[in-house]
Design a protein around this nucleic acid. Structure first.
Lengths: 115, 115
DNA sequence: CTATGATATGCAGAGTAATGCATATGCAGG
DNA sequence: CCTGCATATGCATTACTCTGCATATCATAG
């Protein structure tokens, strides 16, 4: 049965069917960031952001790693990036100004790789 | 603001985040079909199928036209087809056997246009 | 060990979607 | 017109998601 195929697809689409989560992913496809940065970009409370990150993480869409007191998040694979490109258009370049005072905003990062 | 961009994207993903709707779309990307055919393929009641078709239609994802007593549905554009391809893999060929006794099953259709 | 900043988790109230079923509409044939 | 088939709509119930807030955890500095 390919009922499973549709269920899996539906679950994937489901985590994408949320404006704040989309904005988070749109930011993450530019570069990996810490939570406080996403908080500033999205303009929501920290628990709110963490909730959405959890949903995304449990769906396998993003990964995280800890660096000292900070936790950095990034896309887990290219599939989501392709879906975002299809629906949101191409990713914004890395040109945006710092939006908060977190480390990943201050020192424009080590991996300042242009497109 | 691109808040709208995310809202629109979220709405699109939302209509795709549903196993039965995905299965309907998967069938429609093979070829256009009437409602009774989808009913047989998906294995749900006719009102149920019509409900989901309405959701898809109101989202602009599919179109329909009437042919006598039958109503045929088809994908409205290529974007959804590309999203399905990304998530469900390539469309099944048109090789499947008739699943019901509706016209679009019986006479393998007038528009038997290969890819 | 304590304090502080960063992040995660738990929980409850409100809102929204999903589903099943009864019924309405629309079309064609007689 | 009346009947039968194809499809659509309305509605009520159930289930789930969203969101905000209080609080817990974890790491580092002192």
């Amino acid at each position: 049965m390919d009922a499973d195929k549709y269920r899996r697809g539906a679950r994937l689409f489901h985590v994408l069917s949320h404006a704040a989560r989309l904005q988070i992913l749109d930011e993450l496809r530019r570069r990996e960031t810490c939570v406080c940065h996403l908080q500033a970009v999205v303009g929501r409370s920290q628990p709110y952001i963490s909730q959405q990150l959890r949903v995304l993480r449990e769906a396998g869409v993003i990964e995280n790693y800890r660096d000292g007191p900070f936790v950095f998040y990034r896309l887990a694979d290219d599939q989501v990036a392709r879906l975002l490109e299809e629906v949101l258009g191409p990713a914004r370049g890395p040109a945006r100004l710092p939006v908060c005072s977190c480390p990943c905003c201050r020192e424009e990062p080590s991996q300042a790789v242009p497109v």
